[in-house]
Amino acid sequence: MSEKKTKRRDFLFTATTAVGAVGAAAVVWPMIDQMNPDASVKALASTEVDVSSLTPGNTLTVLWRGKPVFIRRRTQEEIDEARKVKMEDLIHPEKDEDRAKNPEWLVMLGVCTHLGCVPLNDKGDYNGWFCPCHGSHYDTSGRIRKGPAPWNMEVPKYEFVDANTIKIG
């Protein structure tokens, strides 16, 4: 052992360890991935909602993927209030035009982006929503205005199938 030379045996050790590590990873991954959403959970990806009964100034809450979705038919004042807000006043700047393509209808996940509670309707300092858990205030566009939440309430993928039906997901 006077000088350090790479020998056949060193190569064998390295190769064995490397193959062993790959094998271990191949066994570990299924054990980790089994905890991710399964096929039956993913299959519930979309839901259709009849909104014909909804009058302006009211909100319908439906369950989509286990989470509440707020469908708000906004009044003209609410739309105006949301659209006149300056971008520099927002914590997470998003135009109301981008959040509600059809201004009368605001569709978003009713989940506070802080720690996942359901905010309350028509509450808070900005006439929108207020999260009772840790005090986040959202405006009439569901944008975060005050409190610990970092982002606006998320707008999911949705479309009007016909005049009275919204398909979420």
């Binding site: 980790i32 905890m35 991710n36 959403p37 959970v41 993927r65 286990g66």
Partner: peptide, 8 residues
């Protein structure tokens, strides 16, 4: 999502 095994 991984902890939940779903979306909630």
């Amino acid at each position: 999502t991984w902890l939940w095994g779903g979306y909630s």
